[in-house]
């Protein structure tokens, strides 16, 4: 009984700020401006399929790049002494102390046509290159902003893999790549799935990065939804419908990643 009482504030919180808003979004999605039931909004959101696919595609690329960068890095950190592990993790967290917008602005000035990078390349007789307002710039922004969310779960899993396991693998005939494939990868899988979710979910729904680094020249789902609520295309019903589609996509992605997990270690995800 006591656990119920102590859980009450959290339950109240969850109902107030999670369940009720979700219900409201659903209500908006299934009604028209007059308040009548309709599926029109979902039908209309199908028009934006290219935007949705593009969002997913870019986020997948960003997530993959994060994984490729973060995995070896997390492993290297996890094999260091406790002191230098702390320092390195600190350094990785450091950019996160800065405001998200500020970080993204910084990339704008770096990537601009007459920005820092192009100027430096100009000295070498190269460029200028068209870097800002490209899909590449958006992916770069996603990778830069969300990389720590990939490193941290990977690191926290890998730091628990004892060095003697790596030695045992090598003792039993594993080359470095065999050890990777047969010991490290399976043991770090929970970190990989968590990292993928932690990077993919915010990437797919971002609108700031695409607006600032993509220059609004192409839209992502996040931009689309924001426009329906705050922008000139004001249509909350359609925005809510697209939000629900996005939520559905994310849930599917999480369920898929969960499939890779060890059946005994499945975490309490919704699906």
């Amino acid at each position: 009984m006591r656990s119920r009482i102590t859980a009450a504030p959290y339950l109240l919180w969850a109902v107030l700020f999670i369940v009720i808003p979700l219900v409201l979004v659903a209500v908006f999605a299934f009604t028209n401006t007059g308040g009548g039931f309709t599926l029109e909004n979902f039908k209309n959101s199908a028009d934006y399929a290219p935007v949705i696919f593009n969002s997913i595609w870019l986020s997948m690329i960003a997530t993959a790049i994060c994984l490729v960068i973060a995995y070896p890095l997390a492993y290297v950190i996890s094999r260091r002494s406790a002191g230098s592990q702390r320092t390195m993790i600190m350094l990785i967290m450091l950019p996160m102390w800065m405001n998200f917008l500020l970080r993204t602005y910084a990339w704008m000035t770096l990537l601009e046509n007459n920005g820092l990078i192009n100027k430096l390349l100009g000295f070498l007789g190269l460029g200028p290159f068209e870097m800002i307002n490209t899909q590449g710039a958006v992916v770069l922004g996603m990778v830069y902003n969300y990389l720590p969310f990939m490193i941290l779960p990977l690191y926290s899993v890998m730091v628990k893999i004892e060095n003697s396991l790596v030695e045992a693998a090598s003792d039993l005939g594993c080359s470095a790549s065999d050890t990777m494939k047969h010991v490290l990868l399976p043991l770090s899988m929970p970190g990989v799935t968590t990292g993928i979710i932690m990077v993919f979910v915010p990437s797919v729904s971002t609108f700031v990065i695409s607006r600032m680094l993509g220059g609004g020249s192409f839209m992502l789902i996040g931009d689309l939804i924001e426009m329906q609520f705050l922008g000139n295309a004001y249509n909350p019903n359609l925005g809510a419908a697209i939000s629900m589609v996005l939520m559905f996509i994310i849930l599917i992605c999480m369920a898929l990643t969960n499939l890779f997990k060890d059946p005994e270690e499945k975490e309490g995800l919704l699906l």
């Binding site: 004892e162 003697s164 030695e167 045992a168 003792d171 039993l172 010991v183 399976p186 043991l187 060890d262």
Partner: peptide, 13 residues
Amino acid sequence: VNTVFQRYALFPH
């Protein structure tokens, strides 16, 4: 050569 490690180092997975 093969080794029996101090804390066994069995593969938990």
